[in-house]
Design a protein around this nucleic acid. Sequence first.
DNA 1: CTTGATTGGGTATACGTATGCTCGATATTG
DNA 2: CAATATCGAGCATACGTATACCCAATCAAG
Lengths: 334, 334
Amino acid sequence: MVTSRDVARLAGVSQPTVSRALRDDPKLSAATKQRVREAAATLGYSPNAIGRALSIGRSTRVGLVVTDLQNQFYAHVIAPMHAELEKSGFELVLITDSSESGPVADHVVANGLCGVILATTTVDSVLPVRLHDRGIPFVYFNRVAQSVPADSAVVDPELGVRELVAAVAAYGHRRVGAVFGPRNTSTGELRESAVRNALSDHDIALASRNVRHGPFDFDTGYAAARELLAGSQPPTLLLCGNDVVALGVLNAAAELGLEVPGDVSVVGFDDLPSSGWALIQLSTVAYDLDAMSREAVRLLLGRVDGPGGSGAEVKSTVFPTRFVPRRTLGPAKA
Amino acid sequence: MVTSRDVARLAGVSQPTVSRALRDDPKLSAATKQRVREAAATLGYSPNAIGRALSIGRSTRVGLVVTDLQNQFYAHVIAPMHAELEKSGFELVLITDSSESGPVADHVVANGLCGVILATTTVDSVLPVRLHDRGIPFVYFNRVAQSVPADSAVVDPELGVRELVAAVAAYGHRRVGAVFGPRNTSTGELRESAVRNALSDHDIALASRNVRHGPFDFDTGYAAARELLAGSQPPTLLLCGNDVVALGVLNAAAELGLEVPGDVSVVGFDDLPSSGWALIQLSTVAYDLDAMSREAVRLLLGRVDGPGGSGAEVKSTVFPTRFVPRRTLGPAKA
DNA sequence: CTTGATTGGGTATACGTATGCTCGATATTG
DNA sequence: CAATATCGAGCATACGTATACCCAATCAAG
C-alpha cells in the first residue's frame, strides 16, 4: 500500500505537507502542491480512509437502517441514496435492525459511522434516543418518531389520498375494506387517518371487520386479502397501505379466482416502478421516491459536515402526493 | 466515546491488557479477563473498528460490486449476503462499478475493504486483474472472468435448461426465439450455449432473426419482445436470459394484447420470488440463490481470515438447476 | 537454596493521516 | 538598515487498537 509518506519521499517534502497539499491547504505554496500532486499521481496514491477517519474522528460512511432488505421498496430507496452519497464521496453501509434493542447504536459508534438514515422508525423506537444521546447525526426517512426531533424526508399523503378517494366514490364503492400499515409507524397512522377522513367526507363507511393492519410487506396484503375477500359479502375495494401490500392483495385475489377490478378493486401507495407494468397496472398514490431518498441523504450530510451540526433548526422536507389511476380501480361490483 | 483506555482505568490495568482480555488472549489470567470484561460491560465499551482496522491493517468490511441496484435480482442477493456477513461481524459496503476503469480497486484500497464480491464481472473485466495485483481477496459471484482465477459461487444451467427444453419440445414449439444475456458475461454465454445445445438435441432451430442479446434487465426483455413479437410469424416461445428479462417480455406481450401462453410462451431463469406470484406464474429455471449468495460470502471470508490466504486451491461451488413449470409455458400456438 | 523456566502483565511502538505549534526564510515597513 | 510581519514547511503528536518485546514475580526442579 502506498502511503502519504511514500509520496512525501518522492516529492522531497514531509508527510504532513503531503496531507496539506492534497487537502488544498492555503498555507502551502502552489509550487509545492503541484509537486506533491504529481508525486501522488505517479505513485497512484489515494489517502487511506481508515487513517483519515481515525485522525479526524469521523468517517465518510453513512448507515442505512432497514428491516427487510428483500422488500422491493428498499431497492428503490437504496439505489438513489447510494448514488447521492457517492457524489459526495461517502459510502453506504446497510444495517438491519432486527432487535432494535440498542446494539445498533453501539454498532454505529464502534464502526465509526458518521451518520445514520432511519428508514424503519416506529413511534416507540428507542434508536433515535440512543443516537441522540451519543450525538450521532441522523435523519428520518419516510417515517418519523415524535420523541426525538430530527431532520426528515417524508410524504404528505393528504392530497393524493383525497384524489384517490374521490375516484373511489365516483366509481360507486360503498362497501370498502383496507389493509393499513402498522399502527406504530407514522406512515401507517398518517395514511390511515388520511384515508378515513377522505372516506367520511364522501360518507363512505369503513367497517372495522373489513380492516386489517400489518407490516408493509407482501404477506400482510396476501393474508389480509385471503380473509377479507373470502366472506359472502366481500368489500368491492381494498385500500392498501402501500404498493407491496397491494401486490400481496392482487395475488391473493388472483388465487381466489377474483377479477380485478371486476370483482374487487385494489389501490396502493408509493407507485413503485413495477406498479406501472402492464401486468400489474396498480392504481396508486404516487410521490417522488427517488427525490425523497436523495433528500434524506442531503439532509444528513448537511448535519454531518455542516457548520451548525445539530444546532440548526430541524428541517423536514415534505413530498406531495397525487393519485395515479390505473386498471386496478374500477366501478364497484353491483 | 468510550475507549479501551477508559476500560483499562476502571479495571486498574493497562490499555493493552484490555485489548488482550477482550480478544481472549491465553496469556492473560482468567481473573484479569473477567475484571476487564466487567469494566467493559459497565462502560458499555465496544472496540472501535477504525482503530482496530488501522492497527491490524485490515477491516471487517466487504464490498459488493454491482451495476444496477434497482435490479430486482440484487435485492435477493444483498439480503442473504448481508445476513451471512453479519453473522461473522462483517459489514456490507455497496459499490457500483459504473466505469469499471480501475478506480474501484483504488476505492477498495483507500477505504480499506478486506475483500470484494464481484457480481457483475464481464469476461473482459479489468477489475479482477487490478484486485489481484493489489493482493485484495475477492470472489466471483454468479459470473466469472477466466483471466484471473478466484473462488466462485456459480450456477450450472445444464440440467435445468435440459428439463426446460424437453418441456418446450413436448409442447410442440418449433418456431422459438430467445432474449439472451450479454455475450461478454459467463452467465450469458453459458446459458445461451446450454439452450442452443438442448434445442438442437430436440431438432428445434433457433433462427438468428428471433434472437436478441442485452443486459439482464427489464428493458432488454421489453424491447426485444416488442420487436420479436411484432412480425407476421412471431415465435411461439421466447426463452429469456433471466427472470427480470422475462418480466420485460411478459409486459411487452401484455401491451401487445398477446395471451401468455396462448399466443406466446415465456420462460425465464433464476426463479425470483415474484416469479412464483399468482399474477406472474413464470415458468423458469430455478436454483438456490440464497445459498449461492451465502456461499460467496463464506468463500470470501475464507480467503480473508483464512490461513492460506490466496495460497489455497481455487474453490468453485456450483449450484445445480431444475426446471420449474408454471403458467407461462404452454402448448405452441397452431 | 539457587537457578531456570514459566506465567502475567506492562512498556513501547506501529498503523496512516491530520493539525497545532514552531521556526527559518523571505518580504515588508519605518 | 533594522525590526517586524508573513509565508512556507517541518516537528511533534494525537486518534484507538494491537502486538513484539521486556520485566517482575511465581514456581519447579536440581
